[in-house]
């Protein structure tokens, strides 16, 4: 049997070809994506733009943000530290002033460890090495940062009305699968699941959906170059490969779309079967 002629549709977003399969689920919609300069956040913003959205791209790394999004249609950059609630409030105030509402919020900004210890996974898991500053920093960016953005984003999502809106938070397979990582990261990512449940229960009647994605190791997102280490991670997956950010983005954007209108409070594990 010959393989298929499935209809691929490539949309250029800046210099990036984005597969959409022809979907146009976000025409005229406003989205905000944190951690949008690189990795999964960038891929989510690209997919949303490819399907017609105007996307506010938030990231701490102002230069990278400009480098990625400068000159891209319907991408608006705001340099923001999600761990700083005043900065977050200011960013969402700008979105309010410019559009008055927000349909989609993807809370993707996150770090694997304190940068003084490790830029990438796995970090030093020995508890004695995890000082207060490290613990507080990782929790502040990953967990408090997600809360800051949802708190600032909800009034704008409410302004959409009963048409509804969607929030997707980035948890991690590290919150679900036992693995000897430095503990601030899995702790923060498990906290995101609890937060997702609570906000989903709170906002369901307003037709605002809140879900989480729990990715396995994603290529180019916080992952070290060390091929041997990466191989030990993917070997735990029945689908034994490193997933590209664009595939993770496809799943996140699906949860943001009207295709998933009755899915709320869920943590979808996109992990090649590492967690079932």
């Amino acid at each position: 049997m010959s393989d298929t002629s499935s209809q691929h549709t490539i949309v250029m977003v800046g210099q990036t070809p984005v597969e959409t399969w022809g979907a146009r689920r976000f025409e005229g919609r406003i989205a905000a994506v944190t951690g949008a300069a690189r990795g999964i956040g960038r891929a989510v913003a690209e997919r949303l733009i490819a399907e017609g959205a105007t996307v506010y791209c938030l990231d701490l790394r102002a230069e990278l943000l400009e480098e990625t999004w400068n000159g891209v249609d319907r991408a608006v950059t705001i340099a923001t530290d999600v761990g700083d609630s005043a900065a977050v409030d200011a960013a969402f105030e700008r979105i309010r002033a410019e559009h008055g509402k927000l349909h989609v919020l993807v809370c993707n900004a996150g770090i694997p460890d304190h940068p003084k210890r490790a830029k990438d996974f796995p970090g030093d898991p020995e508890p004695a090495t995890i000082d207060d500053e490290t613990w507080e920093f990782v929790l502040r960016v990953n967990l408090t940062g997600t809360f800051n953005c949802i708190r600032a984003g909800v009034p704008l999502i409410r302004a959409v009305g009963l048409e509804g809106g969607a929030i997707v938070n980035l948890s991690s397979v590290a919150a679900l699968h036992p693995s000897p990582l430095a503990v601030p990261y899995p702790s923060s990512k498990a906290g995101i699941i609890g937060m997702t449940h609570a906000f989903a229960a709170l906002l369901g009647k307003e037709n605002i959906r809140v879900n989480a994605i729990a990715p396995a190791a994603t290529d180019g997102a916080m992952m070290p170059e060390d091929k041997e280490y990466l191989a030990t991670l993917t070997a735990k997956q029945p689908i034994d490969r490193l997933v590209p950010p664009s595939e993770m983005a496809a799943n996140i954007v699906y949860l943001c779309s009207d295709e998933a209108q009755f899915i709320t409070g869920q943590t979808v594990s996109v992990s090649g079967g590492m967690v079932m």
Binding site: E247, V270, G272
Partner: peptide, 17 residues
């Protein structure tokens, strides 16, 4: 679909929460 190429063994709960 190929959009979910990296999802296997999952149960997606579609239940309004």
């Amino acid at each position: 679909s190929d959009e979910a190429q990296f999802m296997t063994g999952q149960t997606v709960h579609i239940n309004g929460g």
